[in-house]
Design a protein around this nucleic acid. Structure first.
Lengths: 346, 346
DNA sequence: TTATGTGATGCAAACGATTGCAGAATAGCA
DNA sequence: TGCTATTCTGCAATCGTTTGCATCACATAA
């Protein structure tokens, strides 16, 4: 009970046991040069005084905050929540904490967060960028100093960096091939903005499958916009009022696929008979929907663990800066469900 | 470019502009006693040197980390994700950061996190406890010191504390009354463990509505367990193999309601004709399901903003410790959908 | 006895910012 | 010119730990 309601420090312990602060510090951290006897005594007194370690002071002194910053568009996306959980659990094993921030899909917000995080002395950064991040100078060595950064899922296009991504190309390819094998020949593609890496890759996969089946790529049935319900319904309106209606829609997330289903229901288009539909990310709604929606599983836990391990390697493994960049790819798996299978109406 | 790759500090700026560190510090923080001229010069040099503020050092010196700790069972629950987002956005306006941790429904983990957070010198704690937290001594003044804590959603039972909760009693009452009004007289209740405040309140609301309609409370059709799919299916098995099958199930979350629907589908029980079903939390799956599920909207954003405002009041408003506790209640709204409406089979 | 080794402990300087108080410079006024 | 106000700036202590180096006691070997 020193002064008013000050916190008790190792100095207080030192006084209580009649030793120097350095010995107390070492005793508490189980330093080999301290006798067992002293250690138990110090720990007992610490306990008794209600001592609490001040991680801030330690972080300042050793310039190691044991904290990683995470920037994510929004945590309310099921995929992101799962990745975050995996990252957090993994980092915990390394003794690191995670500061989670949401950019809300705003590049300005994203930049603000980076600066804020740098101020808090994070030792590393894990980032999934916004849909609209085009300018990556915020992540340059000039603003980050020696703080390593690992991107995941949505990663910079045309910028060498450490990253871990799903096999989006394969995902796009598999979905499209599957639809083609079901007999579809006019496959619409509802995609996100191409400024975002994942959509670009999926589009490439889509194109490749079409090529393989000698189906010409028709840009009139490919849309790029944020994948919410409203936008998707608008795209459907355009798609189904044209002369040639599609026989399948490859939507780039499950929210969008659900919207397509809703549109079809309202317009008496039967799925999967007249129209086949696929989503992406395999969130829990795909199984609940009637018909159930075919989707692509992305194994968020693998990605989260990978990201955590990667940032740890970069921090602890003291990679030489300027060395080459590491890029990891996690698998994807097409989950076929009702919405994309069965005979079509001729 | 001082030493190796040391970070540049205000000292470096001081040397560069030929002033003392104190003036530089004041200039950077826009102190009124510093001339405009000096301020612009200092800021220019800071910019040029690539100076970055060290929040750690400042936090240590002023004993104000500007950080709040959040402990939540898991962020993957839609409701929780929404609350967290609201909290984070609100706190940002106050200049506070949020450290988010997940207890994964484990009281042991929860306790570990509290201790860890205290070490990082958070200025406040926001907590939604696990389903099984019964011992609240971790949140006592003895371990928390002067750090205030506000609970939300799942809050301690029988412990005075600052908290913000949904109107669970009303929710339970409204749901039950609604089902009674639809003609149901044998309403099963699938609830979570009663160690958790929200389930206790909902149960009370359920009982009150029954009483009002002079329907006896029958403990044989009330179940308490974690509300996942497996457990719910088991409960359904018990419910529908008894002599008297229920004509309604009031499930305490949407996952559970969905499971009931699945069970009904597999056993050719038609919903809502033979059986009415309601969920709780109104997550996005309730609208996707066929039939759509009646549920209770909890307005997570209100709760998040409330929690943030409350903790800020406690921190900045320097409430006298030992003063009375604040308890806020946010509204709920029953959303009636297909699963609970329409005439019953007699 | 002296030299040497060993294990335990203390001294004091960091880490990077903030801030009360003192002091210098300038201006205003008689 | 002298005196007081008014601005602006600097000194130095402080926040709670960590850690390189010096020191000290004691035992053992020469």
């Amino acid at each position: 009970m020193k002064k008013k309601q000050q916190q008790v420090t190792i100095k207080d312990i030192a006084i209580a046991v009649g030793m120097s602060v350095s010995s107390v510090s070492r005793a508490l951290s189980d330093h080999p040069h301290i006798s067992e006897e002293t250690k138990v005594k110090v720990n007992a007194v610490a306990q008794q005084l209600g001592y609490r370690y001040n991680a801030l002071a330690a972080a300042l002194r050793r310039s190691r905050s044991k904290t990683i910053g995470l920037i994510v568009p929004r945590i309310s996306m099921a995929f992101q929540a799962a990745v975050i959980t995996a990252i957090q659990n993994s980092l915990q094993d390394f003794g690191y904490n995670l500061m989670i921030f949401q950019s809300n899909e705003s590049p300005e917000q994203e930049e603000k967060i980076v600066n804020l995080l740098m101020g808090t002395q994070v030792e590393g950064l894990i980032v999934s960028v916004t849909l609209y991040t085009k300018d990556y100078h915020v992540f340059d060595r000039s603003t980050l100093g020696n703080v390593p950064v690992v991107f995941y899922d949505r990663v910079p296009i045309d910028k060498a960096c450490h990253k871990i991504v799903g096999d989006e190309y394969s995902g796009g390819y598999q979905v499209t091939k599957h639809l083609l094998e079901q007999g579809c020949r006019r496959i619409a593609h509802i995609s996100g903005p191409l400024s975002c890496s994942i959509y670009l890759q999926r589009l490439n996969g889509y194109k490749e499958a079409l090529r393989e089946f000698r189906v010409p790529y028709d840009e009139d049935i490919v849309y790029f916009h944020e994948l919410n319900k409203e936008n998707t319904l608008k795209s459907c309106d355009l798609l189904f009022t044209g002369k040639q209606v599609p026989d399948a829609v490859f939507a780039c997330n499950d929210t969008s696929a659900l919207a397509v289903l809703e549109y079809a229901r309202e317009h008496q288009i039967s799925v999967p008979t007249q129209l086949k539909v696929t989503g992406y990310a395999n969130d829990s709604r795909t199984e609940i929907s009637r018909p159930q929606i075919s989707s692509v599983e992305q194994f968020p836990h693998l990605m989260g663990e990978g990201a955590a391990k990667l940032i740890m390697d970069l921090i602890e493994g003291s990679e030489q800066p300027g060395k080459s960049f590491i890029s990891l790819t996690t698998p994807v798996e097409l989950i076929k469900r009702e919405s994309s299978q069965g005979k079509s109406a001729s």
